[in-house]
Computed example of a mutant assay.
Amino acid sequence: MSKITLSGHIKVPIEDLDAVLTELPNHIALTHQEAGCITFTVTQDSNNPQRFDVYEEFTNKVEFEKHQARVKTSHWGKVTNKVERFYTITDH
């Protein structure tokens, strides 16, 4: 199986920004603990506080899909339900 890379950004509605910032460290920590996670970063843009750059790599598609499923049912999934996502997913 080949590595999966997701890169891009999210745009957070201003009314959800505090909740996203509060939950982000937990989301990052939980993702780093997942099987198959090679790297995972979410960084707030210094010029636009509503934009967060996202970069992640997983060892294979199965582990990436497990991550996606976990996120949908997590607290992070709840606080980011109105976030706009602009991602490119690459299978290496």
Rank of each mutant, 00 (worst) to 15 (best):
19 A>E: 14
58 F>Q: 02
26 N>C: 06
5 T>M: 12
85 R>M: 09
61 K>A: 11
5 T>N: 04
10 I>K: 01
60 N>V: 08
77 G>V: 07
42 V>Q: 02
88 T>G: 06
92 H>R: 09
39 T>Q: 12
36 G>T: 08
86 F>Q: 10
66 K>D: 01
72 K>F: 01
8 G>P: 06
77 G>P: 03
27 H>L: 09
77 G>A: 11
37 C>H: 03
76 W>T: 00
31 T>F: 01
72 K>E: 06
79 V>P: 00
60 N>E: 07
80 T>Q: 06
91 D>C: 10
55 Y>W: 08
86 F>A: 00
54 V>T: 07
28 I>S: 04
34 E>W: 03
86 F>C: 09
28 I>K: 13
19 A>Y: 10
84 E>G: 02
16 D>Y: 10
44 Q>W: 01
53 D>C: 09
29 A>G: 05
71 V>M: 11
73 T>F: 10
45 D>K: 04
80 T>R: 02
88 T>Q: 15
73 T>S: 15
45 D>T: 03
37 C>L: 05
15 E>R: 12
81 N>G: 03
18 D>C: 00
43 T>P: 06
32 H>G: 01
26 N>T: 12
19 A>L: 13
74 S>C: 07
49 P>M: 03
58 F>N: 00
67 H>F: 08
1 M>K: 04
45 D>N: 15
14 I>S: 12
75 H>N: 13
5 T>P: 05
84 E>M: 09
14 I>C: 07
13 P>A: 02
52 F>D: 06
56 E>D: 01
14 I>T: 11
78 K>W: 14
89 I>D: 02
5 T>K: 14
63 E>S: 10
36 G>F: 02
12 V>R: 04
2 S>P: 12
92 H>W: 10
6 L>N: 04
70 R>D: 01
1 M>P: 13
86 F>G: 04
82 K>P: 01
36 G>A: 01
90 T>S: 13
34 E>F: 00
55 Y>G: 05
80 T>C: 15
39 T>V: 11
64 F>A: 08
7 S>I: 11
34 E>S: 08
25 P>Y: 06
1 M>T: 11
81 N>E: 14
76 W>Q: 06
61 K>C: 06
46 S>K: 12
16 D>F: 09
5 T>R: 15
47 N>S: 12
15 E>A: 12
81 N>H: 15
38 I>V: 14
70 R>S: 01
66 K>A: 03
53 D>I: 06
42 V>E: 05
84 E>C: 03
75 H>D: 06
55 Y>E: 02
63 E>K: 02
3 K>S: 12
16 D>L: 05
62 V>C: 04
32 H>P: 01
75 H>R: 15
82 K>C: 07
78 K>Q: 15
53 D>K: 03
85 R>S: 10
42 V>H: 05
46 S>Q: 13
6 L>M: 15
83 V>P: 13
81 N>D: 14
74 S>T: 02
62 V>L: 08
52 F>K: 05
89 I>M: 04
61 K>I: 02
69 A>C: 05
14 I>F: 11
49 P>N: 12
3 K>Q: 14
1 M>E: 10
